[in-house]
């Protein structure tokens, strides 16, 4: 059984608490980006692209039972690392919980600035898009259960 959204967020906060310096955090994020499982090549297209102006993000979602599986990629490694964290937290979670997730870990680990729309890196839109998938899949599950 996969731990819940908040349990994983707390785990990440715990991991980041070991770092004193921003450099260590960034090294960790960059490594995370490099080890992020690749998105299937067929999904790295215009339809799955989230335009962020500076860096591009690709996101794919599939429903597996009541849970949503995300895969994603970016052309910038720091963006990709943060995507890795978001996928770790939200992928494999129930659709209904993704919709209502409060992603407090971003602020707690000091990466809030990367989620700012001002950064135009696609991350802010990506979080919205992940929740949108959660919302749509949740609606689908509920209508099928009626």
């Amino acid at each position: 059984m996969k731990p819940g959204i908040d349990a994983i967020q707390d785990e990440i906060i715990e991991e980041f608490s070991m770092f004193d310096e921003w450099m260590e955090k960034y090294e960790y994020i960059i490594d995370m980006g490099k080890s992020l499982p690749a998105i299937a090549a067929e999904y790295k297209d215009e339809d799955h692209e989230i335009k962020g102006c500076q860096s591009k993000v690709w996101l794919h979602a599939a429903l597996n039972g009541e849970r949503v599986e995300f895969t994603a990629d970016s052309d910038a490694v720091i963006t990709k690392g943060i995507i890795g964290l978001l996928v770790r937290v939200l992928s494999g979670q129930p659709a209904s919980e993704i919709v209502n997730a409060n992603l407090y870990f971003i602020d707690k680990i000091g990466l809030k600035e990367h989620l700012s729309p001002n950064r135009s890196n696609g991350l802010a839109s990506m979080v919205k898009q992940m929740k949108m998938y959660g919302y749509v899949f949740d609606g689908k599950i509920k209508s099928e259960n009626v």
């Binding site: 490694v77 963006t79 990367h114």
Partner: peptide, 8 residues
Amino acid sequence: HPYDVGAI
């Protein structure tokens, strides 16, 4: 990527 360089 320019974004990564700028972020550092």
